[in-house]
């Protein structure tokens, strides 16, 4: 198991949040000397320079603004990602505003320090072993119904659903999207996925990519609007993750949310969707029995 880590900050020098991104990276190197620092400018001009390091490492990507230069630099690679940090979201989370000064003020330093501690904490908790999985796999509580030998699960918190059986899991101003346990059960073994292109702007309920089983082909109908910032490339190799772990390892794409406050109004939370799903299953069963 590879345990190497590297860090790629956006290094924006024209905004204080970019300077925070750079400072976080420097603090990480200071705290974890084994970690490799990737210079975004050098990576952009001669990426062969970092080829080996990137191949062998999991990366921490730090973006200072919505342009997400650091993210874009690794988007096209099949890069193992440990964590993505979006400084404005962290600033909100810690309620620390670094101001606009390009020479970091006390608050800016404090924010960078807090973020770096947070990353190290997570790193230790992961014991390095899990980090090749791009998205953190949290345990979650779920509602469950058993029909014959099949189980249908719905996470209790953190996920929102549309009536097309797709979910969104927001985290700050980004979100993961995927399909529900019910939908994966319905289509059965997924063999192929067509992932959307990174950078695509989508509206709520647009189709984003598709997945195909022996039985059928279906589109994923996005529960929210936004811009695709990453896709789960591992699904190309492991489409079965959508069946085995639809709410976590089987995530489909990551979006930068555009209008979630409004999108949210047309979505169900875990308990709402569970009720909806149960009704659907009962209806299907009744129809079957009727035909019988």
């Amino acid at each position: 198991m590879d345990k190497k880590l590297c860090v790629l900050p956006c290094n924006g020098i024209d905004k204080s949040l970019g300077v925070v991104a750079r400072t976080v990276a420097l603090k990480l190197i200071e705290k974890e000397p084994e970690m490799n620092l990737i210079c975004p400018v050098l990576l952009n001009t001669s990426d062969e320079r970092y080829e080996t390091i990137l191949k062998e490492s999991n990366i921490v990507i730090i973006d200072g603004c919505m342009t997400r230069c650091a993210t874009k630099l690794v988007d096209e690679r099949n890069q193992k990602i440990f964590k993505r940090i979006f400084i404005p979201a962290m600033s909100k989370q810690f309620k620390i505003k670094p101001g606009t000064n390009l020479e970091l003020n006390e608050n800016g330093q404090k924010l960078a320090e807090k973020i770096s501690i947070e990353i190290i904490k997570e790193l230790k908790a992961s014991e390095y072993d899990e980090i090749s999985i791009e998205k953190k796999l949290e345990e979650f509580d779920f509602y469950e119904i058993t029909v014959d030998k099949y189980y249908f699960q719905v996470p209790k918190d953190g996920y929102f659903f549309n009536e097309n059986d797709c979910w969104v899991k927001p985290n700050g101003n980004t979100a993961l999207i995927g399909i529900s346990d019910y939908l994966q059960n319905r289509v059965s073994d997924i063999m192929f996925v067509e992932l959307p292109k990174v950078g695509t702007e989508i509206e709520q309920f647009d189709d984003v990519g598709s997945f195909e089983s022996v039985k059928t082909v279906l589109d994923l109908i996005s529960p929210c609007s936004g811009r695709i910032i990453s896709v789960n490339k591992d699904l190309k190799e492991h489409p079965e993750w959508m069946n085995q772990d639809p709410y976590r390892k089987g995530w489909f794409a990551e979006l930068e949310l555009k209008n979630f406050d409004e999108d949210w109004e047309l979505l169900m939370d875990g308990s709402g969707y569970f009720k909806y799903m149960k009704e659907t299953i009962t209806k299907e069963k009744e129809e079957m029995d009727f035909k019988n």
Partner: peptide, 11 residues
């Protein structure tokens, strides 16, 4: 017809 589904069009 399932609202927002247009998969048949792809066939």
């Amino acid at each position: 017809c399932v609202v927002f589904c247009r998969t048949c069009a792809k066939t």
